[in-house]
Structures are given as C-alpha cells and as structure tokens.
Design a protein around this nucleic acid. Structure first.
Lengths: 315, 315
DNA sequence: TATCCTTACGGAATTCGTAAGCATG
DNA sequence: CATGCTTACGAATTCCGTAAGGATA
C-alpha cells in the first residue's frame, strides 16, 4: 500500500470513475493509475470498483468504506504539509476564501486589506461561487474558509459558525412611486416587476418562501448572481431590486437610487463562516476570522471544530 | 512523502527516540530509518526531532503536531486492512481482548466459548495485564476491546462503556471467627491480616480509600494480581482475602471457604468495556460485546465511538 | 569505550511511461 | 468506431542493505 494508490482511488471516485480523467488530473499516465488501483484491490483482497467488462461502473460496498478511510488519510497528509509550512514559513502562504459575491464585493475588502497589512507575505485568493459551490470548495479543500448565507450548514464534514445577521432591502430609482413609501408591503412588491438574485443564491429562498406563504406570484423580470448587476438594471428602470443590505451601505445617499429595508417581509438571514472538519488551519486563517468579527475568536472556532463526544457513557 | 517514513517517525516516538530499536521493531536497517526520517523532515521543511550531536533528544513542537497527524494516518491505514478482511474473509480473523485476570478467569470463559461456536474461524487472543496495561494495549491497537474496572476511562483516545457493577467480598476459611459474622465492619477487617490485589489492580483503590477515610491502617500481608492466588493463601491461613465477587460465584458452597459481600464498606465498582476511538471494529467484535451483555449493542457502541459535535454552533 | 546517528555507495525492487490489446456503447 | 480499461515491457527512479565515519555519555 502506498499513498499514490490512495490518491488515485480518491480522485477516480471524484471523477465519475473515469481513470483517463483521473490520470490527467494527477499528471500521470492512465495505465499507471489502472495498475495502481488494481494492485491496491489485490492487496486488500476486495474490489473497490465494480467493473463491467473494462469499464468501472460503480463503487462497491467495501469501496465506500475504503473511500471514507482514504479521505481521512489524504486530509491528514495535507495537514502534514500545512504543519510544515506553518512552522517553516511562518506568516507566509496562501489564504483561500470561498465566498459569494455579496461578501466578496461589500464585506471582505476591509478585512482582506487589514490581513494583507498584518501578513504581507500571505497571498489571498478569492473563489466566488454559489453557496453550494462554496460548500463544495471547502469539501474539496480548495478553500480554507467559506463565507455564505445558505448551504454551508447541512454537511456533516463542515462546521459553520454564525457571522452576522442581515436583511434584504428593496431598491428603486428615486423617482419611483414606491420610493416615498416608508414601510413596503408584500403586495406593493408583488405588483412591481422584480429584479433579484438567482434562486441558488443569497437568501433568495427566503424571498420565495414569503411570497409563496401569502399566495402571491411576483414577476421576476431578471435574476442575477450579483447585486452590482441588479442595481444596474434597477437604474435602467427594469424594475424594483431586492438585494442584501450590505450592497447598499456604501451607496451615495445623494445618488440616483432609493432603498428601504424589507426584513419585516422576508425575515432575517444569517451569514455564516464555515470550515471543513479535520483540516488544519494556518494561524493567519484564525487571524482573518477574527477580522471578520470579534466573536469569531480562535478558541471559539477550535471548539466548534474539535467537537468530540464525551469519553465515557454513563449508565 | 510515503507511508514508510510515517511509520518510522511514529515508531521512533514510541521507542524513546531510539532509531536502532525502531529499526529492529520494524524489521529493517537502522540507516534506512535514519535516512527516511531525515528526508521527511527535509520535505516538510521542519525538524520533527531535536538532535544533540548525533542523538535524538526530544520531539520538537511542530513534531508534536506531525505525530498527531501520523497517528491518524496509520490508524486509518490499519482500518483499510481491516475493511479488506471484513469483506474478503468474512467471519475469519482474530479477536484480541485486553483484560484483567478477574475477567479472563471468571467472566470471559462463557462468552468466549459462545463466540467460538458462532465464529469458528475467529481466533481469540487474551492479553492479560493491569488496567493501565489494558488501556495501553488499546492505544497501541494491540487489542480490539479492553475490559477492566479502572483507568480505561481517562484517555481521550479511548471510549469506555459501563458493563456491570460489582462489589468486593471478604473470603476466609470456614473455621475463621469472622465466618459467622453476617455483616462485617471495617474495624473487623482492619484487625485481620489481609490478602488482596496489588495496588495497580481491580478496585484496590476503593479498598485503600475506605480504610484511609476511617483512619484505619490495615495490614496487607500479601498482595497478588489474581484471585486464585489470593484464595490459595487464604486457604493456607495467611489472612482474610478481599477479592471481586465474581471470583467466588463458582466456588463450591460445600468447600472450605466462606465469604461475605462487603460492598457496604468499599462501595461498588463498575467494570467497563473500552475501545479506541477511530479504529474500525470487525463485525465479530460487536458480536462479542453483545455476548458480554445485552446492553452492549452495536448501535450503542457505535454511538459512543462516533461522537461528533453538532455541525453548527448557534448564536 | 560502548552506544547510536549520519553519510556513502551499490544492488534490488518498485515505479512509471509508452505501446499494444481488447471491451463497451 | 471512439472511448476507455488492462496487459506488456523497458527505462528511470527509488528503496534498502552493508560498510564506514563521527559524536555522545
């Protein structure tokens, strides 16, 4: 048994059992991958993959267990590398953040700038995506830290910690009739053409739920994945926008857009910070989390991550 | 990086940083071990061991972290092997039990016999030792299951589950004056020469504590690690024996020994079944646990072992 | 001086790539 | 017939053992 065999099996499982792709992804030859996997199966005495003729069809039952163990092993191999870097190249490295547009565009600039000042030798990589892509990037260990409002809870392998609470705001041109209404109602909004996030995104679920509960069928004339795009179309008169409040905070009050909070209609959302269980975090990841909010202290995160049941069950 | 390097580091840490011994234990050459470790350190960019001239003096701080990761990796490599055997050689294998004399001699014969009937191809290995040796055998993954009254709780890496409650009994020749006393007192016993377990053993702690609390200083004329030895000396008139009640259950009532329960003096003890966290258990280990007591069902054990904190921390 | 780690070096074993074979959809 | 896994084989690399060197207690 060797680590290479484990990497091959792991990658093959992630790549729909296609060994050709697996070989490419790991920069090696396809026959090498095939042989290595066969040898591991031989050594363990079981089939990890069920074969149909010369194709891999699916993962066997023992294969499932094998994959779980391999996942842990490779995670810890990654941790060994991280340990090396943490001590050998203190305050040098890469902070990989998976996040949605709202955070990347409106919330992160400040803390990222501060982090860069404190850790000039740490490069920051922003990965933007939908909440479920954020979760996937954490699971794949592509990102160290994930920031999003949905989906980051709901995976056993992930731990998520509440970060801040936010509500939606309705945005419209200052000349719009609704711009003068202090407290908007669901009916007000349902009558307007709406511009908001794509359903896979930040809090859109909450919006749909609210309308559905009141049996209203609003017309979404445009769905986008980011608030800048939405605001642009609102300016163009396409309709009333529904965006996260952070997207308006920096907006010039003398500008051309008016906005009203609508948390009373769609409820309040909780943005969360997420990590993958078992993956070692470099010290600057903790530092960055603290920059996101005082509450996100290192001990809190370690407690959340290190969850283990009590040692002894009592009678 | 390869698994061999990790094995060497792991073993070296367990063998007082002596690479010569490490090499012997792993059936390889000493220079090979040395080189492999140096190469791993080189690759990770850190020193795992602090060297003084040409000797390893101690484990560095990053080395501590490295060892934790290695421990997990090697544990899972062991699990991979176990998975292979579980599926390839169903109901064939080895059940390794670490236990104290009392259990091995008086409690286990029945369940072990039943297990052998149900799993004729599973060989049973009994490792006898003190409670702390039992714990160590679990930690070293020499034993799959540990049975003892003390010390098996108190290690983070171990999970222990209550098995049965027991009390001590005082044993004496039938002709002994105390044989007629229905309810013995601490004073009664403190006046007699006593024969009992060695301090490292089964429940002896409770005995010492009880006497100490009442400021009594009993005379232990003989300390042994097993009840058979103790009973033999009691027969020989050396003194009154204090043993676990299981040791007397099978004693012929028409024999030469009388005994009285003394739980009211020394309290009640709890024998526990213990496992090492993260180590996969073959199906027959669960079967054996159920033979030890109905309460020790597979789901209960899995719940105890699989302890993970909740995924999300709430505000 | 005995123990014990590191360096040096050569043979053995393993790994890994290319080329060819063959099954599936 | 295009895709994709397995087998075959040879070159390159890695592994691992013995022998020698040097430091500590």
């Amino acid at each position: 048994m060797n680590l290479q065999q484990l990497r091959f099996v792991h990658e093959a499982a992630r790549r729909n059992l296609n060994l050709t792709e697996t070989a490419k992804a790991l920069f090696t030859s396809q026959p090498g991958v095939s042989k290595a996997i066969l040898e591991l199966e031989e050594e363990l005495g079981i089939d990890i993959f069920e074969r149909h003729g010369k194709r891999l069809r699916r993962i066997t039952e023992p294969g499932q267990s094998v994959l779980r163990a391999i996942e842990i092993i490779l995670r810890e191999v990654g941790n060994l590398r991280r340990i090396g870097e943490e001590y050998a190249k203190q305050d040098t490295g890469r902070l990989s953040i998976a996040t949605t547009h709202s955070q990347a565009r409106y919330v992160l600039p400040q803390p990222v700038a501060t982090l860069r000042q404190r850790f000039p030798r740490v490069n920051v990589v922003l990965h933007q995506g939908s909440p479920s892509q954020v979760a996937q990037m954490l699971l794949d260990e592509v990102a160290d830290i994930g920031l999003a409002t949905e989906t980051v809870s709901g995976f056993d392998a992930l731990v998520s910690i509440p970060w801040y609470e936010w509500q939606h705001v309705a945005v419209m041109p200052k000349a719009h009739p609704l711009a003068g209404v202090e407290r908007l109602s669901l009916d007000d909004l349902a009558r307007e053409p709406l511009v908001s996030y794509h359903p896979s995104f930040t809090g859109r679920t909450a919006i749909d739920r609210a309308f559905a509960t009141h049996r209203l069928e609003p017309q979404f004339v445009l769905e986008a994945i980011d608030a800048d795009v939405i605001k642009t179309y609102v300016r163009g008169g396409l309709g009333v926008g529904l965006v996260a409040e952070v997207a308006m905070r920096e907006e010039n009050p003398d500008g051309d857009l008016a906005w009203r909070p609508v948390g009373h209609l769609f409820g309040h959302n909780v943005a969360r910070v997420a990590f993958k269980r078992g993956v070692m975090l470099r010290s600057y990841v903790f530092a960055f989390a603290e920059l996101l909010g005082d509450r996100l202290s290192r001990p809190l995160i370690e407690r959340a991550l290190g969850g283990q049941a009590s040692t002894a069950y009592e009678l």
